[in-house]
Amino acid sequence: MTFDQDLLTQLRDARHGVVFTGAGVSAESGIATFRDALSGLWSRFDPMQLATPEAFAADPELVWGWYESRRRQVLCSSPNPGHIAIAELAKRLPQLTLVTQNVDDLHERAGSRDVLHLHGSLHYPRCSRCAAPFELAPAPRVEATEGRRLAPPRCLQCGGAVRPGIVWFGESLPVAALETAFAAAADCDLLLSVGTSGVVYPAAQVPEIALHNGATVVHVNPDPQALGGTDEWLLAGAAGEILPALLQAAFQD
């Protein structure tokens, strides 16, 4: 796999890199996506039955069971070469900010630190009443039956039902994480947009802000889409193939 020398030079010389990841990165580890019509986790349900505060209030056993099934699927999966390459890139640049739309912990398990989770995390639930964090017991490393109903645990502080720690439809993204991501995008000189179509807002503003502020933006996706800037690179393919090759080409030891 060969890359343009100008791109390799920009990657080597980057002062502050931002990596912005989406569902495609985790899909390469076997994590089912929300919007895959054939195998997505929503194939048997209307998304609005599962991913809103109202759905949880109406049927907490169904919603909690569904998200526990997703969490257990993550626990049975492993970081792929794309995750590992991103963690390695952080060692090569003076500064790297990792922003993800994914709700799993595969970036952390690959070695990345201080990951900004814009859509929350399956691994950090909280009380639906008082918002106190709740520590989950280790889940068996087997997948739960899809759609299995499970009673959510109760908050140790107020007794309220514990909810998944993800951002549902109709909810705002975590302000601190979003503001930090926007600030990093405005400051960076190179941004890698990996495994995302860039259509989910406001998260999709991250690469737009980088491009608007003069950064080089590199899209890594099987079907990459440009934003219309003058300094964009489109690398078509899987992150687990392209990112390790890109690092090897840029940082030949």
Rank of each mutant, 00 (worst) to 15 (best):
A210E: 01
L96T: 13
D231E: 06
F34W: 10
L89H: 04
A236I: 08
W42G: 09
P47I: 10
H123V: 10
A249F: 06
T97H: 13
N80M: 04
L178Q: 15
H107K: 02
E68L: 13
T100F: 11
N102K: 08
G229C: 07
W168Y: 15
T97A: 12
Q101H: 11
H119M: 04
H107Q: 01
P222G: 03
E61Q: 10
L136V: 15
V167N: 03
L136P: 08
P60D: 13
D187Y: 00
A250E: 05
T196E: 02
C76T: 15
G24M: 04
G159S: 05
I166V: 15
I166F: 09
V162C: 01
T97Y: 12
P222R: 13
L190F: 13
S112G: 12
L93F: 02
P202Y: 04
K91V: 03
W168G: 14
F169H: 13
D6L: 13
L96W: 01
L173W: 03
L234W: 13
C188S: 07
P125S: 08
T100S: 15
P133Y: 03
S197Y: 07
V217T: 08
H16E: 09
S121D: 04
L243R: 10
G159N: 09
T196C: 02
A132W: 10
P174Q: 12
A239R: 04
V74A: 14
A132F: 01
E146A: 13
A139V: 05
A249Q: 06
P81E: 04
R141H: 08
F169S: 06
T33E: 02
Q252A: 15
G17E: 06
A55D: 10
P202M: 05
L11A: 12
S128I: 08
R163F: 06
A27Y: 03
T180V: 09
L11W: 03
C155N: 07
S39E: 12
A183Q: 13
R129V: 01
A32Q: 12
L150M: 14
H83K: 06
D6N: 14
P140S: 00
V194H: 09
L173I: 07
F34D: 04
P164N: 11
L7F: 10
R149V: 10
C130D: 12
R148W: 00
D13V: 07
V167H: 10
R141M: 03
S29M: 07
R15C: 10
F20I: 05
F134R: 02
A137W: 00
C158W: 09
F251P: 06
A137P: 05
G160Q: 13
L234I: 11
W64D: 00
R35I: 10
Q49M: 09
G229Y: 05
D223N: 09
V167G: 11
V19N: 08
L156M: 06
R148Q: 11
T100I: 12
W168K: 05
L190P: 08
A161M: 11
L38H: 14
V19S: 04
Q73H: 08
Y201G: 11
Y201E: 14
C158E: 11
R35W: 08
P153F: 12
Q157C: 11
L11S: 10
V199Q: 12
Y67A: 02
G195I: 06
L8T: 05
P60I: 13
V99H: 04
H212K: 15
